[in-house]
Design a protein around this nucleic acid. Structure first.
Lengths: 228, 228
DNA sequence: TTTTGTGAACTAGTTCACAGCT
DNA sequence: AGCTGTGAACTAGTTCACAAAA
């Protein structure tokens, strides 16, 4: 796939597109932001990568490397200014503009996710639920998220400028629903249906597989049982 | 068409001396089992690593390496017998005995997870929900999972031989609840509360962080916006 | 001083390629 | 013939260690 390995060792302010940031890194950026929110809430003004690493059980060199990739945010001899770094991270993660989320499937899981407070935290807005059942369409979640007919997805996704879809439908219909989401122009999908679905290369699909998570824990229990 | 979705949306802590199998591997074992279930359902008797890889977008050498670590399950010139390999994988993953699960927190998410059909699929049994609210205690989920007072966790966990706990409580009380779970003797935890909690080294904690997952998707959208 | 930013070294994970079995 | 199991090669990811900066 990719051949060029190392970029010239000069300070780059503008990042050239094409350099692929690993998902491990983007996940950590989100973790750093959470840590900084906690520090900011506690009134901390500045923190070194060392102190940040100790407090939240991370690796100092990794924090520095992750951040340095996007710019020189630190001050030598001081560390990072919390508010400042927060602002940069929010911008890097694209959280400086409001992101609207649609949830596909108004079953138990879909309804729970629609009202999940963690999603609203960093400025995400759950704008709609979608289902096929006529008994559900027209209703709303306990938190007030309206349930629409899935056939209106394209129309409503455009009207509300929805940029992320969450898949919370049974596995049997997941690929079909993913196709509808893709057809509506949404480019990012968080999937909770067990399985691996096909999406075009310009759409990002991230899956949370509850069955795999549980079975992986089960493996650990099965191993630890006998010896050690 | 092919979209690799490799980076895990979960993290774990709590390492044991004998634990040399990577989590990436155990996650894949669970995926293989799902694939085999599909093949078995379709009446396929045997399959080569090559065919399995093509059908489910995996890597043939990796399948062979993962499986070979646990034994010689294949037949040269033939491939793997589906039923046979299924049985082996279920045994390796510890799914040959019934695993009972307790869910901490009877809020929206906890109740949804309690009735989530995917958990029951491979023989897991959700035996109880736990909460502190007296209005909830004594009630049950729509699917009939009883809600107990969290103070009875130790007693009920022992009575029902609960081996896995799911954390679905607000972040503010998560560490406290994790401590109670650990004190009750449960050795495996699937955590949905955003944050990194402390567990002793003999307890396996696996976290699904919905905020991190969403923010990671947001990053992708922010990058792709400009060009390319 | 202290602490960043970063090449180099190291470790983990994946894929290749082929000997050897059926 | 066909396919597994596996060392070797490769790639990705993490940590070390130190020069340069405040």
């Amino acid at each position: 796939m990719k051949t060029s390995n190392k970029a010239p060792a000069t300070t780059t302010t503008g990042k050239t597109s094409g350099d692929q940031v690993s998902e491990l890194t983007t996940n950590r950026l989100s973790v750093y932001l959470r840590c900084l929110n906690a520090l900011d809430g506690a009134g901390v003004r500045a923190i070194s990568s060392q102190a940040l690493a100790e407090q939240f059980h991370l690796n100092a060199a990794q924090i520095r490397k992750d951040l340095a990739y996007f710019g020189e945010f630190g001050v030598r001899g001081v560390g990072y200014y919390v508010r400042d770094l927060k602002r940069h991270l929010r911008q890097i993660l694209g959280l400086d503009k409001k992101l609207r989320v649609a949830i596909m499937g108004a079953g138990n899981l879909g309804l729970a996710l629609a009202d999940y407070p963690g999603f609203r935290q960093e400025g995400f807005e759950i704008s709609a639920l979608f289902d096929t059942l006529s008994t559900k369409v027209g209703q709303q979640s306990r938190g007030g998220v309206p349930i629409h007919d899935i056939h209106d997805l394209k129309k409503i996704a455009r009207r509300d400028a929805v940029s992320i879809a969450v898949i919370a439908v049974p596995a049997a219909s997941a690929q079909h629903v993913v196709n509808l989401v893709v057809a509506s122009g949404i480019k990012a999908i968080l999937n909770f249906s067990p399985g691996a679905w096909e999406v075009p290369p310009d759409v990002k699909l991230k899956s949370v597989d509850l069955t795999v998570s549980l079975e992986s824990l089960s493996f650990y229990l099965a191993r630890g049982e006998s010896d050690e």
